[in-house]
């Protein structure tokens, strides 16, 4: 994927660019608002990682508003040291699709930006999610694996749905808390792991090949091939 990184801090910028490249993406970096706006407006990207405080006369919010004013719908993840709820709301109102506060774990950034870029390419509403021999029917709310019906609690269903919608991508615990539970803070106890392990009991354990994988220091991934 082609990702534009707008970050003025050299160390953070280099760290993000290198990480994204290692993950197999094509990355452009701009360290000021003017160049950033020019790049974002003139070239096609799958996602933009935007720092809010940029030099060059155009800060992140202005840049984003300008982009949206030009009907540019590229998915934008705002990466900022301004972590207040108010600031978050401002960023999202200006047209941001996701907001990640600094300091951040790279795995979290990667997972979120990949999810965003993928979401930008959605092919309209789906009624059925399929990964390997696992099927999730969104209409009848039934889950089958290898033709065998699996009974899930409503929340387990939503958890599996989220994982399947992001199949092949890393999904962090924070993303699950936000996406499945609509909680915008991290509880002290790691409650997500227990829920995922229960889901595994039902979805993976009775079958020879596991689909839900733990990604160390990052989160989980539901994918067909175990590597």
């Amino acid at each position: 994927m082609r990702i534009l990184v707008l970050e003025d801090d050299k160390d953070v910028g280099a760290f993000v660019v290198r990480g994204l490249k290692e993950a197999g993406h094509v990355v452009e970096l701009a360290d000021n608002g003017r160049d950033g706006l020019f790049l974002a407006a003139s070239e096609a990207f799958d996602a933009v990682i935007l720092d809010r405080m940029l030099p060059g006369g155009i800060d992140g919010i202005r840049l984003l508003e300008t982009l949206r004013g030009q009907k540019n719908t590229v998915p934008v993840l705002i990466l900022s040291a301004l972590a207040d709820v108010d600031e978050r709301v401002r960023g999202l109102k200006a047209g941001g699709d996701d907001y990640l506060a600094k300091p951040f774990a790279f795995a979290e950034l990667l997972a979120r930006v990949e999810a965003l870029a993928r979401r930008g390419k959605g092919e309209g509403p789906v009624t059925k999610l399929v990964v390997e021999d696992l099927e999730l029917d969104l209409l009848s709310r039934q889950v089958k694996r290898a033709g065998q019906k699996i009974d899930l609690q409503p929340r387990e269903f939503r958890l599996l749905e989220y994982l399947m919608r992001h199949a092949g991508q890393v999904v962090t615990r924070t993303m699950l808390l936000e996406g499945v539970w609509d909680y915008h803070f991290d509880p002290q106890t790691n409650v997500i792991d227990v829920h995922v392990s229960r889901l595994r009991q039902k979805v993976d354990k009775p079958f020879p090949k596991p689909l839900i994988h733990t990604v160390r220091n990052a989160g989980y991934m539901l994918r067909a091939e175990s590597t």
Partner: peptide, 13 residues
């Protein structure tokens, strides 16, 4: 109810 649901699994463990 949501909070109880979120912690239910941990409590049960």
């Amino acid at each position: 109810a949501d909070a109880a649901e979120l912690y239910g699994a941990v409590a049960e463990e």
